[in-house]
């Protein structure tokens, strides 16, 4: 049980750091709030035609907020050379990925709830009956973003232009999540049932971006 123990230790350590410093969550929350307030001022009052754009904007805000959170997570590991501690963990390093990924997911889910609330207050997005399917979209989309982000953050650790490299890699690879999750959210808000194929595609995406880094984290952690 070495691997699960280590994954839980990494997860708990990241949660403790998040709760103590509130750097990561604070940056993401303030960023989301600023963008939503700006959108509420700049956008015309949503009409039946323009309302379907709101879920897309929501997921774009989440994507940028997740980038902020991932960058902060990377700084925590590199600031005093702590990444070496994780690299030396006596287990398959895939478990370290699962611990880091779970911590990133929890932070992202928190920001999803916060941002969804902001959209509701400032842009009049009524979740109501759409909530169950919106939660599924948030969960499946969140897993994909967190897994992909954790993998790319680790890859970028020793890169020279890592602050530049991370978005350049993250945004195109996160496009399927952005497209499917925002469409699923829009369908749910419209009162239509989300096609099963979309859920399947999101789940497949999550599976791919959990399994690939799990199997390759040994190499990703080494420089």
């Amino acid at each position: 049980m070495t691997g699960p123990r280590i994954a839980l230790a990494v997860l708990w350590k990241d949660i403790r750091l998040d709760l103590r410093t509130r750097d990561r969550l604070g940056h993401m929350a303030v960023f989301s709030a600023l963008v939503v307030v700006l959108l509420s001022i700049a956008l015309p009052t949503p009409t039946a035609e323009t309302r379907p754009w709101l879920p897309v904007l929501l997921w774009v805000v989440l994507l940028f907020a997740s980038l902020l959170g991932l960058t902060r997570s990377l700084q925590t590991e590199t600031e005093e050379g702590a990444l070496a501690v994780l690299t030396l963990a006596p287990c398959d390093r895939g478990w370290v990925f699962l611990g880091k990924g779970a911590a990133n997911l929890i932070a992202l889910l928190g920001i999803e709830v916060w941002t969804a609330g902001l959209f509701s207050v400032f842009l009049g997005l009524a979740w109501g009956p759409a909530l169950p399917e919106a939660i599924w979209a948030g969960l499946l989309g969140g897993v994909g973003l967190a897994a992909l982000g954790t993998m790319l953050t680790t890859m970028a650790t020793s890169a020279r232009f890592r602050e530049f490299l991370l978005p350049v890699l993250l945004f195109p690879l996160a496009l399927p999540v952005l497209v499917i999750a925002s469409r699923a959210t829009a369908e749910a808000l419209d009162g239509r049932s989300v096609p099963g194929l979309w859920w399947g595609a999101l789940a497949l995406y999550d599976w791919v971006f959990v399994v690939i880094p799990y199997l390759t984290f040994d190499y990703l952690l080494e420089d």
Partner: peptide, 13 residues
């Protein structure tokens, strides 16, 4: 056991 040029610590722990 490894100690590199950096101490390998989490600054806020």
């Amino acid at each position: 056991g490894w100690l590199g040029p950096e101490p390998g610590l989490y600054a806020d722990l």
